[in-house]
Computed example of a mutant assay.
Amino acid sequence: MGNICLLDRSCTSSVQFNGCGWVWMDSGGNIQLVGTQNFSRRESALHSEVEALRRAIENILQHSSCQSFRTNCKELIAKIKEPHTWPSFATELERIEMLHICFSDFNISYVPRAHNQISDILAKTTRSFHRKLHFIGCSVPVWLSRPLQV
């Protein structure tokens, strides 16, 4: 599997925040770092996906040399690989393109949802907070891993 960063986002139209979660795993599949953050709701689920990727990249750049990202959102991958075909996402994609400069071999690819469960749980849990939240650590804290009431 290699040194990878799995990421996901969670959003609904009925809450104030969207959530994103990411997990950095080493080549042995061991979790090295997890992160989660909420942010104001975006205009669409795809805008939230792009925002979640940007935040994951920024955090990984500070804490790891990982350059390989995985998401279960095929539309996000299409936007990253051909940004010029998505003019309504130009501003968001430009930010991500500027972050690419920091990587010697950035790549993003698809991972099935079943292999992205930790990121998904982090994103859903963080979305449910009623105040700003940003967490980075070596494991998921008890207060974040509680069963979800969705």
Rank of each mutant, 00 (worst) to 15 (best):
M1N: 12
M1E: 10
G2D: 09
G2E: 15
G2Q: 14
N3P: 02
I4F: 08
L6P: 00
L6W: 08
L6D: 07
L7K: 05
L7T: 08
C11K: 03
T12R: 07
S13F: 08
S13C: 10
V15F: 09
Q16I: 06
F17T: 01
C20S: 13
W22V: 00
V23K: 03
M25C: 12
D26P: 09
D26Y: 05
G28A: 14
G28T: 12
G28D: 14
G29M: 10
N30H: 12
L33H: 00
L33V: 09
V34G: 04
V34T: 08
G35D: 00
N38R: 01
R41Y: 06
R41K: 15
L46M: 11
L46T: 14
S48N: 02
S48H: 04
E51K: 13
L53D: 00
R54I: 02
R55L: 14
R55D: 04
I57F: 03
N59K: 12
N59F: 02
I60W: 01
L61N: 01
L61G: 02
Q62I: 14
H63N: 15
S64A: 14
C66Y: 05
R70T: 00
R70C: 10
R70P: 00
T71S: 15
C73T: 11
C73P: 02
E75L: 06
E75Y: 06
I77Y: 03
I80Q: 00
I80L: 02
I80C: 13
I80P: 03
E82M: 06
P83C: 08
T85E: 15
W86R: 03
P87Q: 10
P87G: 10
S88H: 11
S88A: 13
F89D: 07
T91H: 13
L93D: 05
L93A: 06
E94R: 15
R95P: 01
R95Y: 04
I96E: 00
E97W: 07
E97V: 09
H100L: 11
I101V: 11
I101W: 04
C102G: 05
C102S: 15
C102Y: 14
F103K: 08
S104A: 07
F106C: 07
F106K: 03
N107K: 13
I108P: 02
S109W: 00
S109Q: 11
S109M: 07
V111M: 06
P112T: 01
P112C: 05
P112L: 05
R113L: 09
R113H: 10
A114G: 09
H115M: 11
H115Q: 13
N116C: 03
N116E: 09
S119T: 06
S119H: 05
S119V: 05
I121F: 08
K124R: 12
K124M: 05
T125Y: 05
T125G: 12
T125D: 05
F129Q: 04
H130D: 13
R131W: 04
K132F: 10
K132Q: 09
L133M: 14
L133N: 03
F135H: 10
F135E: 01
C138A: 10
C138T: 14
S139H: 12
V140G: 06
V140S: 03
V142C: 08
V142W: 07
V142I: 10
L144E: 04
S145R: 09
R146I: 06
R146H: 09
P147C: 04
Q149S: 11
V150T: 11
